[in-house]
């Protein structure tokens, strides 16, 4: 039912999958995600919908190999089927014409940033995209972003692509250059935390889209809870986007480490080859 119609390796650890999911391709909006599960014994994980094709009835998912399930997804082949996909979940991004938008994405956050950046451009905004990662290999979707963005800046920790430096350098550079009406940031929790600290200094409204641990993705389990403005919110039904200035990123960062030990065991089993693919 959810067939892989196209698989493209974007970089060493990042794969793009185009999957048949007719209903979701029609109903999804920028910023929403799906929960996927591979095989009878698979776990449920959230993935942002990067794109969709109404005519072909497909959705696009971009996955970075970081742990057990993403590893299995990386190894999936064209023609294979994903056992379960449900969505679209979460509230869509509130896209409107505001003026100048910075879309700042770090590493694996670049993929979920793509549909949101595109939607802001389509709404008539001036769009400046800042892509940042540890190195050149982890910078993805640069060409795709250039297709619609007014400007794309690239930053890497080691200087192997674009300017050597962090995403925050890019954001600050733009803020100092021109008036910015809103910043959208997606990436590792630490990165979003520092983008938020920076834009708070300049008093620029900032959205962060959070990717947390989830089980059902529909408001049932509460694994995804975060503190926003002092109250507990569920990323799956209240988010995934929140005012970045109100998010407790330190708590989020800790919570993301909830299963580090177990994940290590499971991942090592897979790397040993005992369960390398999809059952």
């Amino acid at each position: 039912m959810y067939k892989i119609v196209q698989r493209e390796v974007l970089s060493k650890d990042v794969v793009k999958l185009v999957i048949t999911a007719e209903r979701i391709s029609k109903s999804r909006k920028a910023g929403q995600f799906v929960i996927v599960k591979l095989g009878e014994k698979g776990e449920r994980i959230p993935l942002t919908i990067a794109d969709s094709d109404l005519e072909k009835g497909t959705i696009t998912l971009i996955i970075q190999r970081v742990g057990l399930t993403s590893h299995k997804f990386f190894n999936i082949k064209e023609g294979d089927e994903v056992t379960d996909i449900v969505g679209p979940l979460g509230l869509p991004t509130h896209v409107k014409k505001l003026g100048t938008i910075i879309a700042a994405g770090g590493g694996v956050g670049i993929a979920p940033l793509y549909p949101i950046a595109k939607a802001f451009k389509e709404a008539g905004n001036k769009l400046i995209v800042i892509l940042a990662a540890r190195n050149k290999d982890l910078i993805i979707l640069e060409d795709e972003m250039r297709e619609f963005a007014d400007e794309v800046l690239v930053y890497t920790d080691d200087g192997s692509a674009g300017t050597k430096g962090l995403v925050t350098s890019g954001v600050e550079h733009i803020i100092n250059r021109e008036n910015v009406d809103e910043v959208v940031t997606i990436g590792p929790a630490v990165m979003m935390k520092f983008v938020a600290l920076l834009t708070k200094k300049y008093n620029i409204h900032t959205l962060a889209s959070l990717n947390t641990i989830m089980v059902d993705g529909t408001g049932m389990c509460g694994a995804c809870r975060v503190t926003v403005g002092g109250t507990t919110k569920f990323v799956c039904v209240d988010g995934p986007e929140f005012n970045a200035h109100e998010v407790d990123f330190d708590e989020m960062l800790l919570r993301l480490g909830a299963y580090v030990e177990q994940e290590k065991i499971a991942y090592e089993n897979v790397l040993k080859g005992s369960d390398g693919g999809v059952e």
Binding site: K41, G42, E43, R44, L68, T69, V215, D216, M220, C221, Y259, Q262, E263, I265, A266, N269
Partner: peptide
Amino acid sequence: TRVNLMKAFKFPEYDTP
């Protein structure tokens, strides 16, 4: 849900911890 639906009590045979 982790235990009943996702069979986490059989981790790592099942993927959910």
